[in-house]
């Protein structure tokens, strides 16, 4: 009996209306088949699609069969953190359905994966009907670098980088998903890359979702401390795992007149930085 599942195993097609449904990439590797659902996240979808493609490339290079459910939108975090529980619950149930057929759900964001893993159980606690699907989802959801290191045990990465980078630990990734060592291990595999740590890499960048617009001045001031810490390392780029932090840090750096320090998602660096 083979330990590997058949490649031809039929996939369940979610109802997607007129939208493009599940899109498959070919299975190429010799690893046991892992059907990995990529949760792109709303910010990557809108702001930086290349991060989604970088994640896709990394997963494929690890031999995963990647599914990108076409109906996905948002994990519900903006509503959840703004006190709109009902809206967040509706989106959480949507995510539950969309990824039910996958063996894993991988997210290039500590914040959105943390929303699923750390907060969905509380959010959906009142509804026992969701319990089984919820347990499946939270058990199989991973932040991207955590998945690459601890599940597929990625050995080689496609990217190259010439220069010094510093890594910003995003709050949710660090404190909800335990992401700390994983991105650093992966970055160490990138030829030409040198890592130089900040004084306080775990210090919040000040983004905080809607906080960043409701309390823009406080948010920007917190970001400034982060920018100073980054500048202190002399790194060519600050690398991180969450798009919210990325927009915040990049936005503050540029407003402060820093046009040279690049702000990159870890997936981009690992897959090989490309410009849009």
């Amino acid at each position: 009996m083979s330990l590997e599942r058949s490649v031809e195993r039929p996939l369940r097609q979610p109802r997607t209306g007129r939208l493009r449904s599940i899109m498959l990439t070919p299975y190429r590797g010799t690893l046991p088949e892992m059907k990995v659902g990529l949760f792109v996240t709303c910010l990557v979808d809108l702001m930086r699609p290349r991060i989604g493609f970088a994640a896709l490339e990394l997963l494929e290079s690890a031999g995963c069969e990647v599914i990108v459910p076409g109906t996905q939108t948002c994990c519900g975090q903006p509503g959840y953190n703004s006190g709109d529980r009902a809206a967040a619950q509706a989106l959480a149930r949507k995510v539950l359905r969309e990824f039910d057929a996958c063996d894993y759900v991988v997210v290039p964001s500590g914040s959105c994966s943390g929303m699923i893993k750390a907060h969905y159980p509380e959010l959906l606690a009142d509804d026992p009907a969701d319990k089984a699907a919820l347990d499946r989802l939270t058990g199989k959801t991973y932040e991207l670098t955590d998945f690459l290191v601890n599940v597929v045990k990625l050995d080689k990465v496609p990217g190259r980088f010439s220069g010094t980078v510093t890594y910003h630990d995003s709050c949710s990734g660090l404190r909800e998903m335990g992401v700390k060592r994983q991105p650093r291990e992966l970055l160490a595999k990138v030829p030409g890359l040198q890592l130089k740590e900040m004084t306080t890499p775990e210090y919040c960048c000040g983004f905080g979702g809607t906080f960043s617009v409701k309390f823009g001045d406080i948010s920007a001031r917190i970001a400034e401390r982060k920018c100073e810490d980054i500048a202190g390392t002399g790194a060519d780029a600050v690398v991180l795992g969450d798009l919210g932090c990325m927009l915040n840090i990049q936005g503050r750096l540029r407003r402060l007149g820093n046009t040279t320090t690049r702000v990159l998602h870890v997936a981009e660096v690992l897959a090989g930085v490309k410009d849009d």
Partner: peptide, 27 residues
């Protein structure tokens, strides 16, 4: 406006992941 008072907002690239993915060349 609260965002851009003390910060720039990096602009999106013009197309969403969803669009680009739908049109990506098959491998």
């Amino acid at each position: 406006a609260g965002w851009t008072q003390d910060r720039d907002m990096p602009a999106p690239g013009g197309k969403t992941f969803r669009e680009l993915y739908a049109n990506r060349p098959s491998k």
